[in-house]
């Protein structure tokens, strides 16, 4: 195992993050905090509790998940796309480093950033709404697993993209709508039966539901199913990364 290489990539990526804290940390924290202010404190006080949870508190897990998904994808995709764009990828390809080590470095750094962001947003949320975490270990597990899975997805997007527009495509046009429609702001129980069934095809439902269960012990789908789905996404992303490196897709000619 080439540990110095993993360390070098990880450190490099974290340093890049450090240079753009305004954009990469402050902006998402403020954006999410605005949701808490508007939906939690302002409008939330006029909305009934959902399954015994005040509305402001109810949306916290979903909003953290929204940020976690978009930031994981954005960080990891940019991290690997930028060297491709500038041409410095040659160094990565010519180094004595395995694919597992490359992915560990990039995805590890992207997931770390998302987890830090998630925890900061969680702490910020506590300032605006009453919070409880019934299952902290599971909360941490959902947080870490989701961050890793979507950082892997971001890595795949960063390899696939051949322009900056494509980098934005998946987070903006797929992940954000799926998260908004995935029970972030409501429980699936409030939907008509037909739309409840449709929602079950939305993979984000399982992530939000499982994560919310770790807070309030209430969920739209069973926790076991949420874990299975995260495991499934993780396996799919790992499979895609494996295929990319096996074929050299968009990396090697």
């Amino acid at each position: 195992m080439n540990f110095p290489a993993i360390r070098a990539i990880y450190k490099f990526e974290m340093a890049r993050w450090g240079r753009t804290l305004l954009q990469s940390l402050v902006a998402p924290v403020i954006a999410t905090s605005l949701y808490f202010v508007v939906f939690g404190s302002a409008i939330g006080s006029r909305i009934n509790d959902i399954e015994g949870v005040p509305y402001g508190a109810f949306i916290v897990p979903g909003l953290i998940m929204l940020m976690l998904l978009t930031q994981s994808v954005a960080n990891a995709s940019f991290g690997i796309y930028f060297p491709r764009f500038t041409g410095t990828i040659y160094e990565l390809l010519s180094a004595p480093i395995s694919y597992v080590e490359i992915v560990t470095g990039y995805v590890g750094a992207a997931a770390t950033k998302s987890i830090i962001l998630g925890l900061i947003i969680l702490a910020t949320a506590a300032l605006f709404v009453p919070l409880q975490i019934d299952h902290p270990v599971w909360m941490a597990a959902f947080l870490v697993l989701t961050a890793i899975t979507f950082s892997l997805l971001g890595f795949v997007i960063g390899i696939w993209a051949d322009g900056f527009e494509k980098l934005q495509l998946v987070p903006l046009l797929i992940i954000t709508p799926l998260t908004f429609l995935g029970g972030t702001f409501y429980s699936l129980n409030v939907l008509p039966p037909f739309w409840q069934t449709v929602s079950l095809f939305n993979p984000v439902v399982y992530l939000v539901s499982g994560f919310r269960w770790s807070f309030y012990s209430t969920s739209d789908v069973s926790v076991g199913l949420s874990l299975v789905m995260i495991g499934l996404f993780l396996a799919i992303c790992l499979g895609l990364v494996w295929w990319i490196f096996k074929t050299g897709y968009r990396l090697k000619s």
């Binding site: 080439n2 110095p4 290489a5 360390r7 070098a8 990539i9 450190k11 490099f12 160094e91 990565l92 180094a95 004595p96 480093i97």
Partner: peptide, 9 residues
Amino acid sequence: CFSRGLFGK
């Protein structure tokens, strides 16, 4: 320093 690390040193 990044290059050195990448090459396992």
